[in-house]
């Protein structure tokens, strides 16, 4: 196995594009190294992205935040301003693993590992994030919900990787939240995850809502109908019930060691409703 740690986007792409065998980019390695150790993947080339400056920085611009794809969870936690704008997203990223894992795990890795249960993806969907992708043909942007196609499968082409995430600034009256259901309290994989981003007008009426779901289908979902169900309401019971129905209708989970189909569908609605209450509260304060 060859290990490379290029310092530019171009050099990284060139290495990845030229490799004939299995190539993997390495961010924190908390998924990749585990997969290599358990013989799930045996790459010929590993390209470490952590020496590329743009991928390790967070900047705030007029159009929003640009978060490098190789920024660790622990670094995100230090970002006071980002936390003020998108507390739900930062909380989701900080749910990943433990203190030790947080020192390494990244948003880019969480997304590109392409697990349907990844914690940060529903929160990124709720925050209306787009990703900036770099590859042999240069840069392109993609909505975050369009990156994961299926378990372990992304929309990235050979030689491409995610450079950064773009998230709009939080306007007045916006709020977000992410909750997951796990049988334990930590060190577990989401059986269901729900991220909610809301916008309210000064009277408290919801004017826009985005709902992302994890672990209830073969990939993280953006459930437009569920968000729409809340629009025009003040998060009253009828609207929440409608939203919960839309969430449950969108779930296409599997029966497995982590939960039954019925359980996941049911609890997805419960968790989404609880997350919506938190997001609404945040939007109003």
């Amino acid at each position: 196995m060859r290990y490379e740690a290029p310092e530019t986007l171009e050099a990284a792409t060139a290495l990845l594009a030229a490799e004939m065998g299995i190539a993997r980019v390495l961010a924190g390695g908390t998924d990749l190294l585990v997969q290599m150790k358990t013989d799930m993947v045996d790459p010929a080339l590993v390209v470490d992205l952590k020496r590329i400056g743009e991928m390790r920085t967070i900047t705030k611009a007029v159009d929003g935040f640009h978060i490098g794809a190789a920024v660790s969870g622990a670094e995100l936690k230090e970002q006071v301003e980002l936390k003020q704008h998108w507390p739900g997203l930062v909380e989701a990223a900080n749910l990943i693993g433990s203190t030790q894992i947080q020192g390494r795990a990244t948003l880019g890795g969480n997304l590109c590992n392409a697990s349907p249960a990844a914690d940060s993806i529903p929160a990124l969907i709720a925050a209306n994030a787009t990703v900036s992708i770099f590859g042999p043909k240069g840069r392109r942007q993609l909505a975050v919900e369009d990156v994961v196609l299926a378990p372990r499968k992304t929309a990235l082409d050979k030689g491409e990787f995610v450079v950064s995430f773009h998230i709009p600034l939080r306007a007045k009256g916006m709020g977000d939240a992410y909750l997951r259901f796990i049988p334990r309290t930590e060190m577990d994989i989401a059986v269901v995850g729900a991220g909610i981003g809301l916008k309210t007008d000064p009277s408290g009426v919801i004017t826009a809502a985005r709902i992302g779901l994890g672990a209830v289908a073969s990939r993280p979902l953006h459930v437009k109908a569920a968000g729409d169900a809340l629009v025009g309401s003040k998060l009253d019971k009828a609207a929440v019930d409608k939203m919960v129905d839309a969430v449950r209708a969108a779930c296409k989970p599997i029966d497995d060691k982590r939960g039954t189909i019925e359980f996941r569908i049911k609890v997805a609605g419960v968790i989404a409703a609880r997350a919506a209450a938190i997001a609404y509260d945040r939007a109003r304060t």
Binding site: P183, E186, D256
Partner: peptide, 24 residues
């Protein structure tokens, strides 16, 4: 211990064989 119909153990690790963690 969770088995599949193929008779194979599906949760041979601490991720899915859930002993309590301290925060539980």
């Amino acid at each position: 211990y969770v088995y599949g119909t193929d008779g194979k153990l599906q949760n041979a690790g601490f991720l899915d064989y859930r002993i309590p963690v301290a925060s539980d």
